[in-house]
């Protein structure tokens, strides 16, 4: 039994702090995941909170047939899907937070432009391709874990990922982005 499963058991036994520990452990990852899907920092805060509230509501029924992490990503993904469906955000151009980044990071304008292009291209991918890339490349999930989150086979994940990367390259090439 892994640490997460033990924490779930402790919470079920009445130890509320155990769920707090899980929130603290995964909140940054879930926020980053949600942000990469929605591209909106404020919405991502709300969706991150909603993800954990939904998880808390369902944790007593968590069977443990998948990893807690995979299960949590699944909840976050569903929250994002519901949000995007409701808000019909898919067609809206997403504001680039880098423009209003006040952290004072000395990133060259060229680098910023390139990142913006990559970000926009990623947002332009079909949902399944985008999700497979986000989960594999950013969240570091294996093919098996990604398949668990997306509710499909490993083969389908590999295909979505492959087509997504290919399409991304084409989109960036069309915009004159130099990959190397």
């Amino acid at each position: 039994m892994d640490d997460d499963s033990r924490a779930v058991d402790r919470y079920r036994a009445g130890e509320e702090e155990a769920f707090e520990e899980l929130v603290m452990k995964y909140q940054r990852k879930i926020y980053a995941f949600v942000y990469r899907i929605t591209g909106d920092a404020e919405e991502s805060k709300d969706l991150t909170q909603r993800t954990f509230i939904n998880a808390l509501g369902a944790v007593r029924d968590f069977k443990g047939s998948s990893l807690f992490k995979t299960w949590l990503y699944q909840i976050a993904m569903n929250a994002c899907r519901n949000h995007l469906t409701r808000e019909r955000r898919n067609d809206i151009e997403i504001e680039d937070s880098l423009v209003r980044d006040e952290a004072g990071v000395l990133v060259s304008m060229v680098e910023k432009e390139k990142r913006k292009m990559v970000k926009k291209a990623l947002e332009g991918l079909p949902e399944r391709q985008r999700l497979s890339i986000i989960l594999r490349v950013y969240e570091g999930l294996s093919c098996t874990e990604t398949a668990g989150v997306m509710g499909c086979t490993e083969g389908a994940v590999k295909a979505s990922y492959h087509h997504g990367v290919k399409r991304l390259k084409e989109m960036l090439a069309e915009q004159g982005y130099e990959i190397a």
């Binding site: 926020y31 980053a32 942000y35 990469r36 920092a41 937070s97 880098l98 980044d101 680098e111 390139k114 990142r115 990559v118 970000k119 990623l122 890339i133 490349v137 950013y138 991304l168 990959i179």
Partner: peptide, 8 residues
């Protein structure tokens, strides 16, 4: 390059 996209 994809991994270079920052999250606020």
């Amino acid at each position: 390059g994809l991994r270079g996209i920052e999250v606020p």
